[in-house]
Design a protein around this nucleic acid. Structure first.
Lengths: 141, 141
DNA sequence: TTAAATGCAAACGCTTTGCAATTGA
DNA sequence: TCAATTGCAAAGCGTTTGCATTTAA
């Protein structure tokens, strides 16, 4: 796992706690929140501690080992950067989350750079809206 | 102010507190947070109360009288819907916020609908990245 | 008159912090 | 050894809630 190597190379210690957080991130299906990492860790290893989870995530973020995505839940979810980054469509009615092809955003990214000189970081992007199925059921906004 | 009319039409009372919140939203330069509305209100009218600010915002959101935008600050900012909606480019280095032409997003919106059947709600969109000036100073990510 | 709206204080969920104790290189 | 890391408990922040009181229609 290159996370280990990178932290080590930067002069940080590879403590058991850090390895557990990194492991939890790698094992996670999709995007996982700090609290979820903690709960998972805590169930196997009751001495674990939420502060250290946050501190480890902070450290990993500093070196771009994880990306943060905000799905509009009032907290952020993490994802191992080396797994690649995804873009998401979040249905605000049923909560379903779909992955979006990166290519769908190429043009936008390009436009922003050309017309605004703005280098968009779309690794974090989650677009809210209404999915195909919910559109059929025409209720509520 | 059509907010008033709409709430009235829906059978809600136009209490002084609600009128003050609506007024604060209308007077706000850009996007304003619940706490900012409260502070502003509180300074003029010390009896005001944060719960009612939240409850009023909740009510207004229910009828699409305000839109929520998340600028990645860990809280949401509100904007009167009838003022029109904007899209934003947020520089994660200097914090600058630029408005984005709606047209820049037409194509994306169209692609999402066509290829994913997803009706994107881009009223809330804030794209994070690095602005032109900060790109010149090539430090930090 | 009466349901709707409010004020208050307490609780919530997530995150951050200060500091003393512990630990890995 | 000794700075880096951790655990703990407390606080921070924005937000929500239950309930008794007040108020607009």
């Amino acid at each position: 796992m290159s996370c280990h190597k990178i932290l080590k190379a930067k002069g940080y210690r590879l403590t058991p706690h850090r390895m557990l957080v990194i492991e939890a991130l790698h094992n996670a299906e999709g995007h996982i929140s700090a609290q979820e990492i903690y709960k998972q860790l805590h169930s196997r290893y009751p001495y674990s501690n939420i502060s250290t989870v946050y501190r480890t995530l902070e450290l990993m973020e500093k070196f771009n080992l994880v990306t943060e995505t905000d799905f509009g839940e009032g907290r952020v979810r993490y994802h191992v950067a080396e797994k690649g980054h995804h873009h998401h469509l979040v249905c605000r009615r049923c909560g379903r989350i779909m992955e979006l092809e990166e290519s769908a955003l190429y043009l936008l990214k390009d436009t922003l750079l050309r017309e605004y000189g703005f280098e968009a970081d779309l690794r974090h992007l989650a677009i809210s809206g209404k999915c195909a199925e919910c559109r059929k059921k025409k209720e509520l906004p």
